[in-house]
Simulated assay, not measured.
Amino acid sequence: MSGRDGTSRRAVHRLWTKLPRPLDPLRSIKVKFGVVAVVTACTAILIVLWGYLLGFRARHTLPVGVLISLGVTQLIAHGMTAPLREMTAAARAMARGDYSRRVRATSRDEVGELAQAFNRMAADLAEVERQRREFVANVSHELRTPISALRAVLENVADGVTPATPRVLESALDQTERLGRLVTQLLDLSRVDAGAAGLEPSEIDVAAFVAEVTAEAAAGRPETRFETSVPPGLRARADRDRLHQVVANLLDNAARHGPPEGPVTVTAAPLAGDRPGATGLVLEVADEGPGIPPGERARVFERFSRGAATPGARVGTPGGGTGLGLAIARWAVELHGGDIQVVDTPRGCRIRVIIPAPSPPA
């Protein structure tokens, strides 16, 4: 019986919310209140006059007129408060984890604007929740894979099944380093959210710097061929650790999405500044993978965004990892006041980083 009653109440609620809202075209809630007051008074007066013409006394027609005017008011004014009731119900649903509820925002007044803002907020929260769930799933997978591999190696060594040869220990070290990279990315992300990271700029020999970062990437991905093109004597002023994050993440992204055995190319060139003698830095990392469609190029730098895995992607990094590397790279570039973007290239993917010349001290 209670189930049928609940179904009936929901049916009545749906019917009530679909009723027309005649005051929606009005742009001000104050005007709506004035219209409601005028309609209420006019309805009551008309009922009293109509009863007087039919020979009824005012003490009989006035209560009837009041009741009828209240009913008319309820019909024409229900759209004024309906969005507020819907927002209350939607907010309660969101508190339970349901972000799919939306408010019927047909009014053009302040309440309608509030309803539209509420719907945008609900959509943003739904997207954040989707990203959170995907991030948890991605990180859980990324953690589970090296931990499982490391556990298997150590168990085999401990049980005497596999001797502790340098090759076996190197395999365990690779999994440990993979875990360390993931933890470092998560720590970097927490610094981004806290806004606690600053810059410590210093003079950098770009050729030596690129060679160092590329050598580290090659050690972690021996199957990929890395190539560099940096003019000798090129120097730049930037935060070495932050710039290392940028290049390392770009190399990892290119190696992961490029074909087996590369190549991944790193190029650097000076960027002429607006001030006489000021020179910035242009870095580009290119691969020969499937590339990024123009419609997806802005999203690849968003947090938790993951590209599709390629046939050459390393096993254990489905979908291109956790989706943090390029987001962290953009954050580090923006700390320098620079820009990072995917540029057009006939083949593969090319990401360009611009580090402007630092401003002179005041």
Rank of each mutant, 00 (worst) to 15 (best):
L19W: 11
R330E: 07
L173K: 12
P346W: 07
R306Q: 13
V64R: 01
E261D: 15
M80C: 09
V342P: 02
D24M: 07
R191G: 04
G277D: 08
V153G: 11
T214V: 15
G180V: 02
E216I: 07
E227L: 14
P20T: 06
T61I: 08
V168E: 10
F135Q: 07
W16D: 08
A115Y: 04
L143A: 01
G160A: 03
H257D: 03
L54I: 00
D344K: 04
E134W: 05
L150M: 14
T265F: 03
G79S: 06
A158T: 09
P63C: 01
V353F: 13
Q131Y: 05
R132G: 06
H244L: 07
V72P: 03
G34F: 11
L324Y: 11
E334N: 04
V247T: 08
G195E: 07
R108P: 01
V230Q: 02
G79L: 02
S190W: 06
V36S: 11
T165S: 08
V111R: 00
V153L: 12
V157I: 15
V36Y: 04
A309W: 00
H336I: 13
G112M: 05
G277A: 02
L49Q: 13
T310G: 12
V183G: 00
A308N: 05
A211T: 12
M1Y: 06
R181A: 13
V153P: 01
A208C: 06
I68D: 03
P260H: 08
G180N: 08
V72Y: 06
A164I: 04
Q116G: 11
L23F: 06
M87S: 07
R101G: 10
D239R: 00
V343F: 11
D159L: 14
N119D: 09
E288Q: 15
N119V: 09
L19R: 14
A137N: 05
A272E: 15
H60E: 15
V111P: 01
R299G: 07
E261V: 10
E177M: 09
I45Q: 08
V192F: 06
D98W: 03
W50C: 09
A91M: 04
A268W: 13
A327S: 14
P294R: 11
S107C: 06
V161C: 00
A149M: 12
T345P: 02
L283M: 12
E142S: 10
T267D: 09
A238P: 06
A82Y: 09
V247C: 06
R151F: 11
G280N: 09
I45P: 00
V103R: 05
R92D: 05
A357G: 04
A11Y: 10
V285N: 08
V103Q: 01
